[in-house]
Amino acid sequence: MTRIFRFAPSPNGELHLGHAFSALLNGDLAREAGGQLLIRMEDIDLARCRPEFEASILDDLAWLGLEWEQPVRRQSEHFDAYEAALDRLRAMDLVYPSFLSRAEIRAATESPEWPRDPDGAPLYPGLDRDLSNSEAAKQIAASAPYAWRLKMDAAIEAAGPLAFLELGSGPDGETGQIVAAPARWGDVVIARKEIPTSYHLSVVVDDALQGITDVVRGEDLFHATSVHRLLQTLLSLPQPTYRHHGLIRDAAGRKLSKSEGATGLRSLRNIGATPADIRAHIGLPPQPTPRT
């Protein structure tokens, strides 16, 4: 079986050294496995993602020496696939429309003892979880803002025990066969009124449709894998192998941001850095010379 890897940036800014590490690591692993590398543009945020950023990203990836299969997948061109997956979850009665405003959520979760998800955000209080279908439909018809959230307890019961194979490591060194813990995320957002998907839903649908066998990404997404395994199981989607890697951080130990110009590939290219310099700087070995 051909192993298929992917690098999936969001075209809402320029690439930085952290992106370079993940992209090159995916390319190296695909080459070592005799597999394929795919590029996916995670551009569901139509307000922030721009064609000029996509063009810049592809140019930087080619400059780094990466080669990938065509065509590039753009999530914005596949909302119908995500909506079909959302429809399946609705048919299983595993999602509900949530209407609480940010202010209402803050007021309901202000207690220091209120549980938080792995990213530190308070779990959704679910005060509107048991609205009748007619009342929810009335609010939707009145153009109230809402998001579709997973009924986490019901979803876990429907899916049963979950695990994933981790070939890298999580933030605390977790590796090997990992027991998934999606309950830590509470009733996560699966889609929104204006966009029929979310990162969690689109990533599992895309990985399945593209035949991804190996998901290689930063350790900041390690805990989100539990939600992804849950959705894969509910939607009868295949399970990839996961390899989470450490993050490239700034001098203060913070995760790099696209706003950090000093670590942007475009800035480094402009002052004369070479692809070999980038590989050395982020701790990757030199790229092998192609055979002639």
Rank of each mutant, 00 (worst) to 15 (best):
D93F: 02
A280S: 09
P118C: 15
A252F: 11
D207T: 00
A23H: 02
A20E: 02
M152Y: 09
D119K: 05
S202F: 12
G176R: 07
H200W: 09
F7S: 06
I44H: 01
A158C: 08
E67A: 15
L230A: 08
G246V: 03
A180G: 12
W185A: 10
K258C: 11
D59W: 00
P122V: 10
Q139Y: 05
R129L: 08
S101L: 08
A108K: 02
D206L: 10
L150G: 10
D172C: 05
V203H: 09
Q287K: 11
P118T: 15
L231T: 09
R217K: 06
V179G: 02
I4W: 01
K258L: 13
R184L: 15
Q70R: 12
D153A: 12
R90P: 03
E54P: 10
M152N: 04
L284Q: 00
W68L: 01
C49H: 01
E194P: 03
P171F: 00
R192H: 14
S101V: 09
F79M: 07
I156A: 04
A81M: 11
H244C: 14
A159H: 14
A142M: 03
I282G: 02
S101M: 14
R149A: 08
A84S: 09
A155W: 02
A262Q: 07
E113I: 01
T175F: 10
G283F: 13
A224T: 14
G173A: 03
D187S: 05
E42P: 03
E67W: 04
I190K: 02
G18L: 06
R229I: 06
D128M: 11
R3M: 06
P182L: 02
Q210L: 11
R129Y: 11
H281C: 08
E219R: 11
R184V: 15
F53A: 14
F164Q: 09
G253H: 14
H245I: 14
R40M: 13
V72N: 09
L256P: 06
S257M: 05
L234I: 08
K193P: 03
L25A: 13
H78Q: 12
H19R: 05
I278G: 10
E32A: 15
A163V: 00
A155Q: 10
A224E: 12
R129V: 05
H16V: 10
A183R: 14
P9V: 07
P71Q: 07
Q232K: 08
I178M: 00
M41K: 04
Y124F: 12
P288E: 13
E52C: 05
L201E: 00
G27E: 04
P51H: 02
Q139K: 15
K193Y: 09
V216L: 12
A183I: 04
P125A: 10
E77M: 06
A137N: 12
Q177D: 12
L167S: 13
A33L: 02
I156S: 06
L256S: 07
H223E: 14
L29G: 13
D119E: 15
